[in-house]
């Protein structure tokens, strides 16, 4: 297997057509065939394709975007903000799963990439939202910490509206952080 990792472009539309990361990860299969292109163009996320040059197919992909989270110490109004990069999508083609490729990509490429970014811009953690059991196991195996384990949290979509926060965001979703 010979790999290359490159930024998604509109020329990749045909190549992603056969990508399949399994039933459990169906939203990730759909994402790379549709919304990833628009998100890439608009700058909402940047998606990188992992190409198997021997088979001329997509072995996996991941998307990155900036984000952050904050916490408030009781009795103060000050938000302690933690700048982060979100690994918003991370998928391995079903034919390449179970070979350690996900771990190799995360530790050998994504972590160094974000560390390099963090040398120039403030960034303390890599953050992921994990929805299924396999993803949760993967992140736990790779030293991620479940953020809820550090205390209850609530989410605001807009920092200017943080007083109208809902408190049930965490149901059904697990937020993990990897500290740089």
């Amino acid at each position: 297997m010979h790999l290359d990792i490159c930024l998604l472009t509109d020329n990749d539309l045909r190549d992603v057509g056969t990508f399949d990361c399994g039933v459990q990860n169906e939203p990730l299969t759909h994402y790379i065939k549709g919304a990833a292109f628009e998100d890439n163009r608009s700058g909402k996320t940047k998606t990188y394709l992992v190409k198997d040059l021997d088979k001329q197919e997509i072995a996996g992909y991941f998307s990155l975007r900036t984000c952050g989270f904050g916490y408030i110490e009781q009795g103060t109004n000050q938000i302690n903000y933690v700048p982060a990069v979100e690994l918003s999508e991370f998928a391995i083609h079903i034919d390449y799963q179970g070979q350690g490729l996900g771990t190799a990509l995360f530790l050998g490429h994504i972590v160094p990439k974000v560390q390099k970014l963090a040398e120039e811009f403030g960034c303390q953690v890599i953050l992921v939202y994990a929805w299924n059991e396999n993803a949760i196991k993967f992140y736990q195996k790779n030293n991620f910490m479940k953020i809820e384990d550090l205390g209850a949290f609530i989410e605001a979509k807009d920092i200017n509206k943080y007083l109208t926060i809902t408190d049930d965001f965490s149901q059904g979703c697990n937020v993990f952080i990897y500290i740089l």
Partner: peptide
Amino acid sequence: AIEVIIKPITSKKAIHSIKKAL
């Protein structure tokens, strides 16, 4: 819009926990 997770820390133990973790 900026996506922010607000984390209300309600105990000294939890404050210590997140600071230590980071």
